[in-house]
Amino acid sequence: MTEQIATLGQLLDGAGTNWRVFDIGRHITKLNKKQFLAIEQAQIPYPFPLAGHAWLAIQFWDSKVSSEPYVWFLKFPVDEQSKLVCASRDHFANMVIAALGNDLTGEQADGKLDNNPYVFAPNANKLAAFNAQLKVLLKQPASQYYEYTQLYFSGKLGFDNWQSVAVQGIADFALRLDSDKNLASLQQAWEQLPAEVLQPLSAMLEHVEIPPVLSEQLLSYAKQAIAQKDILALCCTLRAMSKAQAHTLTVQLVDVILHSDIATESDVTQTIAGRCFNLLSDPERLHIFMDNCAHHQQNEELFPSIFADLVAIPSIRPHLLGLLRKENRSETLARAIGRLFS
């Protein structure tokens, strides 16, 4: 790497592009440039690591060449403190310079990084949600699938006729709840939606700060799901509420779950850990949650896998390590912790 280019931010600036960065490992979350610079210089840990990596989407464009942005989907390893392994970032930057020089946009850039080891392809749901979010940010029209999806959620096609509804259309609808009466349509439709729609829909809504009126409705729906032990419906609702504006309603739902008969269900615990992880930075809630994980009978790998996932998140790590030394914990939790080190 040249002395002039020490970070990806400098590489993008040096190429004359405008750019922005998102974490897309968990929720799709914009990282501001000051924060990203500190991450690149390993001054602060990566805030949302997943499976030992930082998962990034870097959107950039050169307004002199084209208004259409390019996107790099990149994953870089993080160390045991969740700080970026800078050697990997440097390796990627060197490969970019070797392949593209200082011209990152334009026709010559197409396909040049397809076999790069740091480039990955997001799954269909994540890609659709990201594309929908970019179109909103760039004030561009939604995809060609949007209007048909609106028609579906209005109920005019029949909720069982979901086979022609595209994932991208569901993403566009979810990312535009403040447009075209979409919120009202969703509220009327929610309890009638089949699982084939509810699952991808919740995978889109987990990236949306849904309004309080929808959270109130979903909280009531989730409580019914708990009473009926409907795990799929509950997990979909958790995902949909995980980034909600009404944070306290999501807290209320998670606390109800943690004291319910289905608190130890693996799908429920994994959804809380994966989507509502920010609520586990509360030490007492974390203690209850990890105790529930330890009491799961059928899957002995559940506790160590969730522990490994959460201990990497900087906002949770100190509280989870504190739990290792805590005295007033159940024997089951103590044994599960002991097995981590055996």
Rank of each mutant, 00 (worst) to 15 (best):
M1F: 11
M1K: 13
M1P: 09
E3H: 13
I5S: 09
I5Y: 11
L8M: 14
Q10V: 04
G16Q: 08
R20F: 09
V21W: 06
I24E: 06
I28T: 07
N32R: 09
N32A: 11
Q41D: 11
P45V: 02
L50P: 08
G52D: 00
H53P: 11
L56D: 02
W61A: 06
K64A: 14
V65N: 13
S67C: 13
S67T: 15
E68G: 10
F73I: 01
F73K: 03
P77S: 10
P77T: 07
S82M: 01
S82D: 01
C86A: 15
A93Q: 14
N94Q: 10
N94L: 08
L100Y: 02
N102C: 10
L104I: 03
T105F: 05
N116K: 12
V119R: 15
V119S: 13
L127K: 12
N131F: 14
A132T: 09
L138F: 15
L138P: 12
K139P: 12
Q140K: 13
Q144S: 10
Q144R: 08
Y145Q: 15
T149E: 04
L151W: 13
G155V: 01
K156P: 10
D160V: 04
N161P: 10
A166Q: 12
V167I: 12
G169C: 08
I170N: 03
A171H: 04
A171C: 03
D172P: 09
D172L: 03
A174S: 05
R176M: 11
S179I: 10
Q187I: 09
A195F: 10
L205D: 00
V208L: 01
E209M: 08
P211N: 01
P212W: 03
L214D: 00
L214K: 00
S215I: 00
E216H: 07
E216N: 08
I226W: 00
A227Q: 07
K229N: 09
K229L: 07
D230A: 02
L232G: 12
L234Y: 01
C235M: 02
L238Q: 03
L238N: 04
R239D: 06
R239L: 03
Q245C: 13
A246D: 03
H247I: 13
A263E: 15
S266D: 11
Q270Y: 12
T271D: 01
I272A: 01
G274F: 08
F277L: 10
L280W: 02
L280G: 05
S281W: 02
L286K: 00
H295A: 09
Q297R: 14
Q298Y: 12
E300G: 11
E301V: 07
L302F: 08
F303W: 06
P304W: 02
P304H: 02
F307Q: 05
F307W: 13
D309P: 13
R317I: 12
R317K: 15
P318R: 01
L321I: 07
L321T: 05
S330I: 02
L333M: 10
G338N: 13
S342E: 12
